[in-house]
Computed example of a mutant assay.
Amino acid sequence: MSLHYPAAPQDWRRLAARRLPRFLFDYIDGGANDERTLAANVDDLAALRLRQRVLVDVAQVDTRATLAGQPCALPLALAPIGLAGMAARRGEAQAARAAHAAGVPFTLSTVSICPLAEVAAASVPPWFQLYMLRDRGAVRALLDDAWAAGCRTLVFTVDLPLPGMRLRDIRHGMAASGARPALLRAAQVLARPGWVWNVALRGKPLRFGNLTAQVPGARDLNAFKAWVDAQFDPGVTWKDIEWLRGQWKGRLLLKGILDVEDARAAVAVGAEGIVVSNHGGRQLDSVASTAAKLPAIAQAVGAQAEVLVDSGVRGGVDVFKALALGARGVLVGRPWVWALAAQGEAGVRTLLAQWQRELLLAMTLAGVTRTADIGPRHLDTDS
């Protein structure tokens, strides 16, 4: 029996699993190795308890916030997700429209299907996510393209010197080339004829839209993926981030910070903000959850930089908890792609409306009327 009225992230996840080829669903859904950190991100947030208060004037509860200088309807931005444009037809453009309608920022991945110009034309200029590539000329070109498209916030990922060991990608043929993995992927694609019609055929071109100038002549995702894999640079240091700071005139957020010393180093090189992140549990398995690391990092640098957090956020109550732990706002990844795969732009709009309602209810029942006032005192440390 189909699920017609998704009410929670797991509902959207089940719908996405029914619509996407298995290798693509697991690419979005999976984590590194045994996925212990992936689970801990969710479980540690879920384990936190809130203080419920009564007889507080909560007639005027306001979920609005400001993230990276941008007014938002709630303290949330859509995180960058590679290949999100394969979850739905021209998926990043759809998600960007949904985010704009909901009043929150959308972050476009370097390895998106839709190019920057298409996404900016579909709504408003997004935040742009970038990695440090071996080819610094390519980095400069991508920065120039982002600025020309109107992007003013750069989310720079620093925790990917090499891709993590993602076992689901290996099992289902996503991480390998050759005849056998290709046949495995083809079988999974043929099992989803709706996806073939809506995305593979009507959503062309399926390629990394931001990298067409960097990989001239490449006509398929495998060629682009080979170029990207060769561009990961394990020799990147803070000196390279200093160079980047000199290249980018806009606001710089460093994504992938999980240690207080690294947070302080990020502030020292001129980053206006950091994203406390373990890449959604997709890089080094058995590192701590972001909920466990967030309070110390927020205490150390929260007065000097904007502290955001991602990984494990699964609803408006989790947004409240993240703010109570010290974050200014959250980035959300997997849930918006599940909703996109399930119902396209309408699904993402519905998801964000649900989360805003959940946040408003949590604030109301906790006796707080402004997101800026949410803090540690709203956590129940006695239970």
Results as ranks from 00 to 15, higher is better:
Ala46Gln: 14
Met165Arg: 12
Leu162Asn: 06
Phe156Leu: 14
Ala77Lys: 01
Pro126Glu: 03
Phe128His: 05
Ala68Trp: 02
Gly103Cys: 05
Ala148Trp: 15
Glu92Asn: 08
Ala40Trp: 14
Thr153Phe: 06
Pro115Asn: 09
Ala40Asn: 13
Arg53Asp: 14
Val42Trp: 04
Leu74Val: 09
Ala68Asn: 07
Pro75Ile: 12
Leu45Cys: 07
Met165Cys: 13
Pro126Met: 14
Leu162Ser: 10
Ala101Asp: 09
Ala122His: 04
Ala32Trp: 08
Phe128Trp: 08
Pro71Ser: 02
Leu108Ala: 03
Ile81His: 07
Arg152Phe: 15
Ala32Leu: 03
Arg134Thr: 11
Ala120Arg: 03
Pro71Gln: 04
Gly30Tyr: 08
Asp29Arg: 01
Gly164Thr: 06
Leu76Met: 10
Leu154Phe: 00
Ser123Val: 06
Leu50Trp: 07
Ala39Asp: 04
Arg36Val: 15
Ala141Lys: 08
Arg97Met: 01
Val104Gln: 03
Arg89Pro: 00
Ser109Val: 14
Leu38Glu: 05
Leu143Ile: 10
Leu130Gln: 12
Phe156Pro: 01
Ala32Asn: 11
Thr66Ser: 00
Leu130His: 08
Pro80Asp: 09
Ala98Leu: 03
Ala40Tyr: 10
Ala47Gln: 13
Pro163Ala: 04
Ala47Cys: 05
Leu162Ala: 08
Leu143Ser: 11
Gln52Met: 08
Phe128Ile: 05
Glu35Cys: 11
Gly69Tyr: 09
Val42Asp: 05
Pro115Leu: 10
Ala117Gly: 13
Gln94Phe: 00
Arg90Met: 04
Leu78Lys: 01
Ser109Phe: 06
Val61Ala: 13
Asp62Tyr: 03
Ser109Trp: 03
Leu154Cys: 06
Leu108His: 02
His100Pro: 02
Gly69Phe: 09
Ala148Gly: 05
Glu92Gln: 07
Tyr131Lys: 11
Ala98Pro: 00
Ala46Val: 12
Val54Ala: 15
Leu130Asn: 11
Gly137Trp: 14
Leu162Met: 11
Ala88Gln: 03
Leu83Phe: 11
Arg64His: 02
Thr107Ala: 14
Leu55Thr: 01
Ala148Ser: 14
Arg136His: 12
Glu35Val: 07
Leu130Arg: 10
Gln94Lys: 09
Thr37Tyr: 13
Gly150Met: 11
Val158Phe: 04
Tyr131Ser: 10
Ala95Ile: 02
Gly91Phe: 02
Thr66His: 06
Leu48Asp: 06
